[in-house]
Design a protein around this nucleic acid. Structure first.
Lengths: 230, 230
DNA sequence: TCAAAAGTGTTTCGCCTACACCCATGT
DNA sequence: ACATGGGTGTAGGCGAAACACTTTTGA
């Protein structure tokens, strides 16, 4: 007679934000339990009649009051049986991007606090959450090369230098400005607006907008976004 | 008072095999239950104290008597709440490759029958298994371009034309023989043996061997396998 | 007029592409 | 000698890489 399965299933979200040439990850401070007051990834148990994706969306709303811009499944963590010291819990981790307008947070019902951490600031976290974050960062880095997801971290209208700096920051390397601009614009997925952004200093910049529909259209025709660096 | 979570967690495996210029997927015939006598992907419920990966390995052993050559997590299917009409079941799907020596199967304890199906032969399957297979096929196709996994579908020693035909077959396109050979050999991850394979007809071929250690070594140094076609 | 960031072209180099004939074996 | 699959080289084109000065603004 086999024992009845007794495994819990949870979702966790790694939410990235970008501002001022810095990449951030969203963490929440736990309100209850053995990890009270510890920072952890937002997430929680899936409800019986709830799609996994909905569980993530709900948790992000409940715990941090945000709605994300991009969401995809990252990986399911279930090989380490003791990853949660209390019960056997399998976690389906999701990878999410928000743009800076959403960087305003409020700790909602389920969290004591919410905050953005740069990668360096992230402390040692409970469970395998540091590992999950590492995996998410790798995914982000590699996706930048073959999917135009950088724009989901930027506001709707942005100066070209924003996307350039975003690549430099996240990939942590220098990029030839001229070649990068030429390549990126050659895809024809950015719409040049006639708005201008003035900075405190330096020449004002034209604002661009990511043309999602154009991108989807090109993709249908077999186009593949790809950007590489020397 | 929240209801207790009542979700089952299962693993499923999509095992690919290759022989005679044909790609196969492994299916088993169910022995019990409402889908008795139906073909389905090998898999089953995860045990309470069992790592996900071990669950897959165990199921493949129990249901098909095989050990695979390559195994990676594919995707977790849990958005469709009714994917299993009986209970809420979330399935963590794995993607596996075997080489033809392992194409010998035996229906073991838990399955009534086991067989290899070409993609065309696969019938309409219960659950979302057709969808899972589609996703796995896409993963296989795209991975061939940037990871040397084709060799996990071939025997240890193989004539060069085998890998070339494998690419042609799976990607379903023609490939320039000379350019393909030049590129593949230029990576320096194939060891030329001094064995020769005689065929029924035509000139005998040198046998090659995939040099896994060399590949790992190069990868450490920042090398990235990548093969493209016009 | 200086500082700071935006904007812009050309040459060089290496890689991918296209392409066809000879070789070794069995029948 | 013929059929079958194995094995090989080169020229041209195209895109990636390297590289620095001018423009516009605010202080």
């Amino acid at each position: 007679m086999p024992k009845i399965q007794n495994i819990k299933i949870a979702v966790d979200a790694i939410v990235f934000g970008y501002q001022n040439k810095q990449l951030f990850v969203l963490l929440i401070k736990q309100k209850y339990g053995i990890f009270e007051n510890k920072w952890v990834l937002p997430g929680g148990l899936v409800k019986n009649e709830e799609a996994l994706t909905n569980a993530v969306v709900r948790e992000l709303k409940e715990e941090a009051g945000i709605t994300v811009n991009y969401l995809e499944q990252l990986f399911t963590f279930g090989d380490d049986i003791k990853r949660d010291p209390r019960n056997r819990v399998i976690s389906v981790a999701y990878f999410a991007l928000v743009n800076p307008q959403k960087l305003v947070l409020k700790a909602d019902t389920d969290a004591k606090d919410v905050a953005w951490f740069t990668l360096n600031e992230i402390p040692k976290l409970p469970f395998d959450h540091n590992l999950i974050i590492t995996k998410a960062v790798n995914r982000l880095k590699s996706k930048l090369h073959y999917q135009p997801i950088g724009f989901d971290l930027l506001p709707k209208y942005f100066p070209f230098s924003d996307i350039e700096n975003l690549y430099k920051t996240i990939l942590n390397r220098n990029i030839d400005r001229r070649n990068f601009r030429k390549k990126m614009l050659s895809f024809d997925i950015l719409k040049e607006t006639n708005q201008i952004q003035k900075n405190n200093t330096g020449r004002p910049a034209k604002l661009f907008q990511f043309n999602y529909n154009k991108y989807k259209e090109l993709e249908e025709k077999g186009f593949h976004f790809e950007i590489k660096f020397a």
